[in-house]
Simulated assay, not measured.
Amino acid sequence: MENIEPFSDSSVKNSMRAYKYRIYPNTEQKALIAKHFGCSRHIYNWALSEKDKHYKETGKSLSKRQLQDSMAEKRTDKEWLTEVNSQSLLASLAHLDIAFSNFFQGRTKFPKFKSKYSGWQAFQSPQHVTVDFEQNNINLPKLKGIKAKLHRPFTGKVKTVTVKRCPSGKYYASVLVDNGVVNPVPATIEPENTIGIDVGLTEFLIDSEGNKTKNPRILKSSLERLGAEQKKFARNKKGSGNRAKQKRKVSKIHEIVANRRHDFIHQVTAKLAVKNHATTIAVENLNIKGMIRNRKLSRAIQEASWGMFLRVLDYKCRWNGKNIIQIGRFQPSSKLCNCCGYKAESMALSIREWDCPVCKSHNDRDINAAHCYTLSA
């Protein structure tokens, strides 16, 4: 039982929900949005440089408050910083503070400088934002009446709005809303209402009831077209208009692949967390970072997006009052017979089905692993 632990803290009462909308700014709004991108990026890079320089000189770190005071003086010297929303600049300092917290806690690497040539650009407006569903627009400080496709209504208090421009040139607004809804209390863990799931490459998902979901291999089906467009992009002259157009074509293919992958994962997780009878789901604690070091399977593992699948499944289970628990990665599963408990000493990865020498039962490797997760829970 020491190998079992909750996937996340389900007791946390989180009433925040995020809604992503496509926005259609006009020419003037695009120019002002670009200024917000540039100024937010400039403040982030400046603050990162100041913190690094101050630490090398004194051995101490600059606090967020000290950076805010220095930024006020900086805005006086550089008038172009006053053309954008000051709260967006303060949000950049908050993001840098979070980046350093994640670094010191071992979750990420040391923060890097942001590039204006990066495909994704973003800025955040943490205050004085409104969403008008009647007029179908979003109002931000200094950016009023941005047309948006508000396809999903919501109720609650708008906390922040993050405006993003993706590599293909499309604009999106992510609206964070506090709707006051508290996650339901998780159901009691009962063996008869527990299923185990195992993920794979040929079959994306296998559960303990014998159901299998085929891996769509979305990236693999687009590699030929992507390779042709990337070859054209590599032959374009750097700095030319044709190269910029071709870059957007390549970005659109990547965007289509990502959107199809997100759609597939949301459909699969909805079936498990919403439509499934089970109230507890047992999954393996996968070492995905270690697995992608295998150069022969690296692309296939990353294409499967197991990490995204488990993350989405986790919050959907919390929203629906279900439990998701993870089983230790070193606990025997596929080599262990779920009927009699016999454990095979070794088994090649190519063996997908095997017969137990003790109870003579015929076991499917993946379904057997899912069964073992259920028994461990």
Rank of each mutant, 00 (worst) to 15 (best):
R152K: 15
G227S: 13
L140A: 06
D207Q: 08
N136A: 13
Y117I: 12
N183I: 09
G239Q: 07
N139Q: 02
N179K: 07
L176T: 01
G210S: 07
S221D: 14
N139R: 05
A173F: 01
T160F: 11
V177S: 09
G180A: 03
R107C: 02
L176F: 09
I195M: 07
E192G: 11
N211Y: 09
V182Q: 14
R152H: 14
V161G: 00
K147F: 08
N236S: 15
Q135V: 09
Q105R: 12
V199P: 07
E224F: 10
K112E: 08
F123M: 06
P153M: 08
E229S: 11
Y171Q: 00
F110S: 10
K170F: 10
E190W: 02
I138P: 01
T188H: 11
N215F: 00
A244E: 13
G180F: 02
F104Q: 01
K237V: 13
L219S: 00
R217P: 00
G119E: 10
K142Y: 13
H128Y: 13
Q246M: 00
A122G: 07
K220V: 01
N236F: 15
E190I: 10
N136P: 04
R235E: 08
D198F: 02
K109E: 14
G241Q: 14
N236T: 15
A228F: 11
Q246S: 05
T155K: 15
Y172G: 08
D132M: 02
P184R: 02
G156W: 00
T188Y: 07
I138R: 05
V250A: 01
N179Y: 05
S168L: 08
V161F: 04
S125Y: 03
N211T: 13
Q246G: 02
F104A: 00
N211S: 13
F204N: 04
F113K: 07
H128M: 11
A228K: 15
Y171K: 04
Y171M: 00
Q135W: 10
N215V: 04
K245Y: 04
V129C: 05
Y172Q: 11
G106L: 11
E229M: 12
E203Q: 15
G239V: 06
F233N: 13
T162S: 10
T194W: 04
D178W: 02
V185F: 05
K245R: 11
V250I: 03
E190L: 12
L219V: 05
N139M: 01
Y171P: 05
P186G: 05
S168V: 07
R225C: 01
Q124S: 14
L226H: 03
V177F: 06
K159L: 11
L205V: 11
H128N: 14
V181P: 09
G106A: 10
L176C: 09
G145M: 08
